[in-house]
Design a protein around this nucleic acid. Sequence first.
DNA 1: CGCAAGATTGAAGTACGTCAATTCCAGTGG
DNA 2: CCACTGGAATTGACGTACTTCAATCTTGCG
Lengths: 242, 242
Amino acid sequence: MVKPLIQKLEQFAKLSDEDRQVLEDAARDVKVIGPRQDIITEDDEPNDVHLILDGWAARYKMIPNGDRAILAYLIPGDLCDIHVTLLNQMDHSIGALSTCRVAFIPRQKMDEIMRRDGQLGRAIWWSTLVDEAILREWLVNMAHRSADKRLAHFICEMLLRSKAVGLTDDDSFELPLTQEELGDTMGLSTVHVNRTLQDLRAQGLITSRGKRLIVNDVDRLFEFSDYNPNYLHQVGGHKRDR
Amino acid sequence: MVKPLIQKLEQFAKLSDEDRQVLEDAARDVKVIGPRQDIITEDDEPNDVHLILDGWAARYKMIPNGDRAILAYLIPGDLCDIHVTLLNQMDHSIGALSTCRVAFIPRQKMDEIMRRDGQLGRAIWWSTLVDEAILREWLVNMAHRSADKRLAHFICEMLLRSKAVGLTDDDSFELPLTQEELGDTMGLSTVHVNRTLQDLRAQGLITSRGKRLIVNDVDRLFEFSDYNPNYLHQVGGHKRDR
DNA sequence: CGCAAGATTGAAGTACGTCAATTCCAGTGG
DNA sequence: CCACTGGAATTGACGTACTTCAATCTTGCG
């Protein structure tokens, strides 16, 4: 049930059978959330931590002018907001994009897990630090790269993150996003997203078949987008020397 | 010595005299860092947590194309990277912009502080969650707002953050940044930063005298930049209804 | 089969970047 | 007190990556 999370955490630390069991127990309360439904809404004061088991969700903010800013994608194995309860209320929302299975972990349970001795708490910390590093890299991406490299960079990241939770098939993976959602993520119009994707396809960097995206040549895509995966702090894979 | 930090934390929780003393003791090892010098450099594996006592520093990444992306500003009272030691190595650098006094707090000491019972640990957590919320808001800002609103939004934030640590004088504060640094922050050319600032001045929103920036009418600047300070999770001040 | 939502296209506008010159200003040395 | 310097701010002219609008075409799905 919590396989993706475990797989992700084990990149960083070896978990004991007990650790695994603790996670299984914590994630018993599973709800299915339909596409376009919120998991948490701005101004909420949530009492649970949410773990995505299946499907894609997005962290987003609405801007007074009507724009939607997507701030992060949450895929299987991702925990949302381990410690938000410390803050008075949410300053953003989290919504399901596709149909999601989400485990609701009671705040108190989560606190216990984090306080346990051993590797589990450390590993979860590590994953939240990586989430923050991703946010920083997105900031670099939005403010400093052109549309084509920006999109390519994003694709590199989602490929590696999908791979880390066992959701890839060679170098292809499900990218269940509309071009409008991509635009809200990258700060681009849908028209420009469309043309830019065509461009990447024309360059032979990617291929898409429905919602499945195929990276034809990972090295070339990395090269093209100046992709340095160090911020994901994954072990083993994908070193990049510069 | 650690007054700004204490002042900031007390927005969130009442600290005991003992809490205050613990902070004082932890921040004994103070170093002066000159402008343009790094406090931590990418790929370092730091053993200390750094607390800015005086001056401005910036979190930044260099991009292969030679650009510098500024990801955050660190002002007095800001702690850098409470828990980076969990990750193998830094994925970005932190550099002093002006001359900075920085307290080097040994990792172990910091761990003890976070484990103590009572309000101090909670308050420090709160401040790191706010740092992350700031990062998200910056992402919104870069990807979804025009240059003039983007700059205005940034100025609103720095005004409130400066105010929270007692560095404002009415609605004016020191902004020791060059236009090039502003550009590296906002993803704009220096030329465009220059023209945009002139524009804000011409609209009567701000005035600058050397490195001191005066906000002429906070409400108007908030209005202009769609500024909603909820993400700073400050108590009391500056509610915004929409 | 039929309908929406999404993807694609074309044409025209604009907010920004680039390049290169000039002016301003704080600090330094005489 | 002034002249000199180098970094920062400012300006003008021009180029371009993106946006906007509005139409059409495609696709998944009841």
